[in-house]
Design a protein around this nucleic acid. Structure first.
Length: 807
RNA sequence: GCCGAAGUGGCGGAACUGGCAGACGCGCCGGACUCAAAAUCCGGUGGCCUUCGGGCCGUGUGGGUUCGAUUCCCACCUUCGGCACCA
């Protein structure tokens, strides 16, 4: 027998699959389709074990589903725009495109060596002109609907580099490159109106099969709050200012009023106020502080405006402050402050000597006036609230709002934490936004025929006060498509999350040059039946993609409203108990291990470590052990192939074990996603086979083991399958467990006395309850424990156990 | 602070619907093969006690429900993840 040599058999079968286009799939509809998708990689650097985990999970499921007769789409591509390539270009020179394409080639090579079964004919890289073209086309459709718009918003700004920074480029409030302290600046940005879809994004979580923790994170992110909007009038300005509150029941307890420093009225107030200079100084200082710094502040700060707001419920005039504990982008950017019932308002009242007025207290009992009382359950009633006194707090709140509704001073309202998605980046390596700015016509979208807008080459990727694209003057200066006058192109590019919001649709119809996709094709394959990825994309990417699909459905471009029917969250791969990452400096890649042990051992081991949705610690000893199993499998199956006769139909212990393994592996892959225990089941079968390799049913056991291990270890499985005299295992039907063989004539009855196991008896499978009890009580070992006492109760679990309770 | 997850041998984990705790693997111990080593194969391996038959204890801690709890309920501890002045 020849030695197991993965370096011979793995390339051999990879070539066969490629030659036969084994995993390419047509768009011809079939009764049972399955779209299996893993989150596509960033082509920065090379693959690490985290990638190996996600992609192997997907590969196992795709193989399995193919073999149970499904029409499986399993594509792969690259999320190839983004900062890493651009930063590499700045650091090492060269064009981001060259760096990206070099990385893609090398990652693709690694992927082939691991033997993942993708339909490579559908590969996409998001930086390709064709992909950009259709993304720009989609942008224009969003723009036409008013779902993409421009507004001023705060961004991170490095005063030294004169550039906007992405969040990832800010570390501890400082610019990652030069170390200068980052400022917040108000700048015009592009936004998608995702908040229009907040409620539906929340509601439709009930229609998809995501892990509960992931749904919880999305709900949290969307952050729905029910409450009321209440209008206060600022006397001195004669202007109405609405506030949002979740506690309208505390309206009588409002003793002051606060505006965020960024509130639109602040400038006007500063002009009219005698404290104008103080106000401007406070606002200027607040702008310099980072959000985290504001949140961490020990003491509340603020400034009195000299003005007053009128509480609509009782006409009371309360002082108006400007304070940075009020956020500009939540609610209305202004609050009514109720220090008696809110921790933050209380702290501010303490610092500024403002009154605290109790309006809610428990039905029975007093509250300590020295601390805010924030309880809001069934047990509270209103006090100090005029005609509402004595009402339960929730009902009182409702009545107060109803009262204000009549005068149009208040209404029930719902607020979301979710903000519109700012998607423009002042960077080079991204998809250009297809609009121009015309002096006469303002923002003018380009016509579809002008697409794609490609990236011009520039000399320097470092933004200097303007995005890098602004350097390409020939490219920037164009004529307005509307009036023919001079115009300039948009020099900002799209966030890469836009690229990843629709890539799964393009896989379905990747070469379409008349449309982003054919609707019938996309409607056939989608929604994705199984989407696999890390929890790091639980909010941003997953929510953006869900938003995109809802909009596309509204545009009648797709026939569904959710992109992913089921999501499986893979765990982190750790090394030294720390998540593998470049930053932690503990990344190990698959290439060395594939070189040393072969791809099959790597694939098997990554899924054998533990449950794939939990964190997995990569160890050298572990893969060593898996390699031993693979070599053992090789040896025993080769022995059986050479020695055991074909066509024997005798059944024995090995046959039963084989069927048990089939049942276990099928359920584990098909239903439970418990890949580790499926591998264990095959190991048990192989262990038993190596104990009796001469049994008459050894060949069946060997064939079963090879067939069951194929999704994990496709190369060795294919090689052994051919040595067993068959071919094309990858398209052979998945084996089916024979229930009649699983059923045995006898079983081991567990006999307990007072809940403790005292004996195990071999009993006929069809024994009646009486017979089981009789057998149990007859056991001499059990007798010694029954000694003296009498049996007070007998519990029988059919085909499992008898418990005798003695007193 | 709020939301979420997890605590089982020396280690990774198994026990799926309340019914034999520790499958499978790593590591370790012993043995075979060998001049020797590696590789391979065979056996053992939760702790304590043992007259070697077996006995007692044991799934983060404390309680509860139950004939029976790793599994269900209550309280707590620890670790990890997410969000965080969200009115």
């Amino acid at each position: 027998m020849d030695r197991y040599d993965p370096h011979t058999i793995e390339p051999k079968w990879q070539e066969v699959w490629e030659r036969e286009r084994a995993f390419e799939v047509s768009n011809e509809p079939s009764p049972s389709k399955s779209y299996v998708l893993e989150q596509l990689p960033y082509p920065s650097g090379s693959l690490h074990m985290g990638h190996v985990l996600v992609y192997t999970i997907g590969d196992v499921v795709a193989h399995f589903r193919r073999r149970v007769g499904m029409h499986v789409l399993h594509p792969q591509g690259f999320d190839s725009f983004g900062l890493p390539a651009e930063n590499a270009a700045i650091k090492e020179g060269g064009h981001p495109r060259e760096i990206t394409e070099r990385n893609i080639e090398s990652i693709r090579r690694s992927m082939r060596r691991i033997g993942w079964a993708y339909d490579w004919s559908r590969m996409i890289s998001t930086h390709e002109p064709e992909y950009m073209r259709w993304q720009q086309w989609l942008f224009l459709r969003f723009f036409e609907r008013g779902l993409a718009y421009r507004k001023a918003a705060p961004v991170k700004w490095c005063p030294n580099d004169q550039t906007v920074l992405a969040n990832e480029q800010v570390r501890d409030g400082r610019c990652e490159r030069c170390g200068w302290e980052v400022e917040i600046r108000l700048m015009e940005q592009w936004f998608f109106r995702i908040t229009d879809y907040a409620q539906e994004l929340l509601d439709d979580l009930d229609r998809v099969d995501y892990p509960e923790p992931l749904k919880a994170r999305q709900r949290n992110w969307i952050g729905r709050s029910e409450g009321a909007e209440i209008v206060f009038r600022i006397e001195e300005l004669n202007i109405d200012v609405p506030v949002f509150t979740t506690r309208p029941d505390t309206l009588y307890g409002a003793t002051f009023f606060v505006l965020a420093p960024e509130h639109e009225l602040v400038e006007q107030i500063a002009e009219r106020s005698q404290h104008g200079d103080e106000i401007r100084e406070y606002v200027r200082r607040a702008a310099l502080k980072k959000a985290e710094e504001r949140a961490a502040a020990e003491e509340k700060t603020g400034v009195f405006t000299g003005m007053h707001a009128v509480n609509p419920v009782n006409g009371e005039q309360i002082p108006v402050y400007i304070a940075d504990y009020v956020l500009t982008d939540y609610g209305t950017g202004a609050i009514m402050a109720v220090p008696a019932h809110d921790e933050r308002d209380f702290a501010f009242a303490q610092a500024f000597g403002l009154p605290v007025r109790q309006v809610v207290r428990p039905v029975d009992g007093e509250v300590d006036e020295g601390t805010p009382y924030v309880e809001h359950t069934e047990g509270e009633v209103l006090v100090n609230s005029d005609g509402f006194d004595g009402l339960p707090a929730t009902e009182g709140g409702r009545r107060i709002v109803e009262g204000l509704e009549a005068e149009r001073r208040g209404r029930f309202a719902i607020n979301y934490r979710l903000r519109d998605w700012g998607f423009s980046r002042q960077r080079y390596w991204g998809c250009p936004i297809p609009v121009v700015y015309c002096e006469r016509d303002g923002i003018v979208p380009l016509p579809d025929e002008a697409l794609p807008v490609l990236l011009p080459d520039v000399d320097d990727y470092r933004p200097k006060g303007k995005p890098p694209l602004a350097q390409a003057e020939d490219w920037v200066n164009v004529t307005c498509p509307k009036c023919g006058g001079p115009a300039t192109r948009e020099t900002e590019t799209m966030d890469t999350f836009v690229d990843s919001s629709w890539y799964f649709l393009r896989y379905c119809d990747p070469h379409n040059d008349r449309a982003p996709w054919d609707r019938d094709v996309v409607d056939y394959w989608n929604p994705v039946d199984l989407y696999i990825g890390g929890s790091d994309h639980a909010t941003m990417h997953m929510i953006y993609a869900r938003f995109f699909v809802k909009v596309l459905n509204d545009l009648a471009l797709v026939g569904f409203r959710e992109p992913f029917a089921k999501f499986f969250t893979n765990g982190w791969v750790t090394l030294g108990k720390t998540k593998m990452s470049k930053r932690a400096g503990n990344v190990v890649g698959p290439d060395d291990f594939v070189e040393q042990y072969g791809a099959d051992s790597v694939r098997l081991y990554i899924l054998f470590i533990g449950p794939a949705d939990q964190d997995l610690e990569w160890t050298e000893e572990g893969i060593e052990g898996m390699s031993r199993f693979v070599r053992r499998l090789w040896r025993i199956v080769n022995e059986v192939a050479a020695g055991a006769p074909q066509g024997v139909e005798e059944t024995g212990a090995l046959t039963r074990k084989a069927h048990a393994a089939i049942a276990k592996a099928t359920d584990d892959i098909g239903r439970r996603f418990a890949f580790n225990t499926a591998i264990s089941a095959v190991m048990e079968l192989v262990n038993e086979l190596s104990r009796e390799p001469d049994a008459p049913d050894a060949r069946f056991a060997a064939e079963t083991a090879v067939s069951l291990i194929q999704p994990y270890a496709p190369h060795i499985a294919e090689e052994l399958w051919s040595r067993l005299g068959h071919e094309r295992l990858w398209e052979r039907p998945w084996p089916v467990a024979d229930e009649s063989l699983l059923a045995r004539e006898t079983f081991e009855l567990v006999v307990q006395v007072n809940g403790k196991v005292r004996d195990r008896l071999e009993v006929a499978a069809d024994a009646s309850e009486e017979e089981l009890v009789a057998a149990a009580t007859a056991s001499p070992r059990v007798q010694t424990y029954l000694d003296g006492g009498k049996i007070r109760q007998t519990i029988v679990v059919p085909r499992k156990l008898v418990n005798l309770v003695v007193g």
